[in-house]
Every structure is written in C-alpha cells, then in structure tokens.
Design a protein around this nucleic acid. Sequence first.
DNA 1: CCCTCGCTAGATCGATCGTTCCAGGGGCGT
DNA 2: ACGCCCCTGGAACGATCGATCTAGCGAGGG
Lengths: 190, 190
Amino acid sequence: MAGASRERIEVVAAELLARHGYHGLGLKALSQAAGLPYGSIYHHFPGGKEEIAVAAITGCGERLGGMIRGLPDQAVVATGTMFEAMVWQLSDSDWGRGCPIGTPALDGATESAAVREAVAGAFAAMTSALAERLAALGVPGDRADHLATTIIAAYEGATMLARAQRSPAPLQAAGEAMTALVRAALPETP
Amino acid sequence: MAGASRERIEVVAAELLARHGYHGLGLKALSQAAGLPYGSIYHHFPGGKEEIAVAAITGCGERLGGMIRGLPDQAVVATGTMFEAMVWQLSDSDWGRGCPIGTPALDGATESAAVREAVAGAFAAMTSALAERLAALGVPGDRADHLATTIIAAYEGATMLARAQRSPAPLQAAGEAMTALVRAALPETP
DNA sequence: CCCTCGCTAGATCGATCGTTCCAGGGGCGT
DNA sequence: ACGCCCCTGGAACGATCGATCTAGCGAGGG
C-alpha cells in the first residue's frame, strides 16, 4: 500500500503526542514504535517533526469530529458518556495517554505557529461538530456554540486533572455537570 | 536576603512553565531571565530542573488557593470573573502565558512522577479552596467538591482553547456557563 | 534482462540540553 | 584583621535531539 507507512507514522505520532506532548515527541522513538527506519520518516514527511505533528493533530481532529457527528442523539444529550471514554483510555494506559490534541496544545503552541494552528483547527472541528448536534436537538444557534465550546473545554481540563490525580473523579464530575448543562439548554427534557 | 534569589528563580520558573511547559523550561533561559549565573541555580536547587519545577508549581498552587480564599463572596458566585483574569493574562502576553500549573501538567506528567504529584497537589489546593467557599455559600458538601472540580477543569480547558485560537471566546463562554452552574447550585439566588 | 524509482536503512552532523565541577568574591562573627 | 562560608560566575562534559546525507533493496515496465 502506498500510504500505509505514512498512515502508521501518523497514528503512532498521535499516540506519542497524547502521552508526551509536542516536545516529548521523539523522532527516534517514533520510528522505533512505528517499526520503520529513521530515514523513512523524512521521506514521508520532509517537513520533519512539525509536519508530522500537524498531520497527526489535524487527522485526530477530523476523526473526532466525525465521531461526534455519528453519535446517537441520546449520547449527545448525556454528554457525560464522552467523558467516560477518556476514563477508559486513561486507566488502560496507566494514566499516560491523554488527548492527542490537548496534550500538544499547551507545550507546542509557543514553539510552532503551525502546530498551534493545527490544534486550533482540530478544536474548531470538534466544537462545530458538537454545536451542530446540539443545534439539531433544539438549542438556539449561538447558545449551541457557547455550550459546545464549554463542553470541549471541560473535557480537556478534566482530562488534565484526571491524569495528574490518577483518578476518574474529575472526568466523572465534569461529565455529570456537562450533562446537566445540556439538559438545561434543551427546549424540553424528556 | 537569604531566600531572595531562590524566590526569584521560583517566580521566573513559573513564568517559563506557564509559557513553554516542563520540557520547554530551559535552565539556561531561566538563569538568564532571573539575572543569575548558571551555577546559582544548582546551588539553590540541587535537585535540578525537577526540583525547580516542583517548587514553582507547588508555590503557585498555594498562592492561587490563598487567592481564592481571599475573594469576596460575589466574585465566588460570579465565577466568570476568575476566567476574565486569564483573558487579561493571555492577551497581555500575546497568548503565550497560560496557567503555570496546567501547562506543565500534561507534558511533565509522563516525564517525572514528582512533577505529576506537585501538579496534583496544586490542583487539589485550588479545588479544595474553591469547594470550601462554595460550601460556605450553602452548596451541600459533595456537590461543592464536584462543582469546584468542574470549574477548575473548565478553567484549564478554556485556557487551552483560548491560547490555541488566540481568542477570549472560550474563556468567556466557559466562564458564563460556570457562573450559571454555581447559581443553579446555590440554595437561593438573590 | 536491466533500468528506474519509491522506499528502506542507518551513519553522521551540529546544536542544545541538563548536569557537574571548580574558582573567585564578599559579608559575617570572632 | 582574619578566616569561614554562602553565593556568584562560567567553563566543560556527556547525552540526546532534529535534521541531513548517501547507499542499497526490490517490484514493475521497456
């Protein structure tokens, strides 16, 4: 396959980004984890580390946006279910693997403008996908945007707290609060 | 003064942590920014980079916890005011200086267990301070804990989104939502 | 059969990082 | 005035990082 190696680099890079952030993304570790030689990386990504990070972050943003669009209505209303998925991901990885967008968002933003823009685009993709779902459920336009932004922010922040404390509690607390916020914003609660 | 240099290192380290995270905290840049020679750093902090980061993070946690405890009641109810302070800090620093606790939280957690514990402690200090204030305002015990955790999570996450998008909008949206959440949790809204 | 080209494979370079080490300076008590 | 000790000042080291370069493998068309 033509794009198989390139795609594998992207997937492994997202994993490493989720664990160690942008600085911690080592190209030597990346090649080893992907089972590819060092030179192959620069063949597929001539732009080096920055291009790899941008591709991985952008790809994750599109994937997560599509996932939100494919969610059943009840999962959008009970927003807390999104947060429980991160509880699984964290406890499965010994609280190491966070969000592949949020983790490099902070330590890569000041380093590379391209990474910052990729992160902003990925967040925008997730937020707009969620806002569309909320609007379709009856939340008025700008309220839906604000609510979606708040939910994504709480999601990233709760992931940060959960990793630091090695506990699912922050994700559970924020998830329940977001569910309550969505229910309050809906025209009527069934 | 005895602890003057040590304290200056701590303050400058917090600034660099807030901008670049744990990996990005360069000891050469730190000594230069603090106006101290390279060797002084290792004199005051024999543990090197890790000890400096732990001290800076722990200090910031205590300081922010104390700040929350000193807030007037109306500022605790209108939680969004906390978020506006970060809008100022971000726009003043060209969207570079984030939270000195949240920024190293993600990229330092997998690197150093001591840093992760310091971050967890700082978050716990902020959360418990806020929970105490909410409880004093009439929010029942465990609800206050959950609410405080949600607010801190939304604060950190909104800061992350605001830095990436170079816009105050996420902090404003999350701030308003958290204010609404607090008002809904209070026994009566004056 | 051979030539071409996408891809693998890894040695290597310069820069930078955290760390260690030692030499000099200045205020304090005696 | 003298010696002690906390602190400053910076050189030097080994390790590691991202990036560059060149050589070789191997399938597919002439």
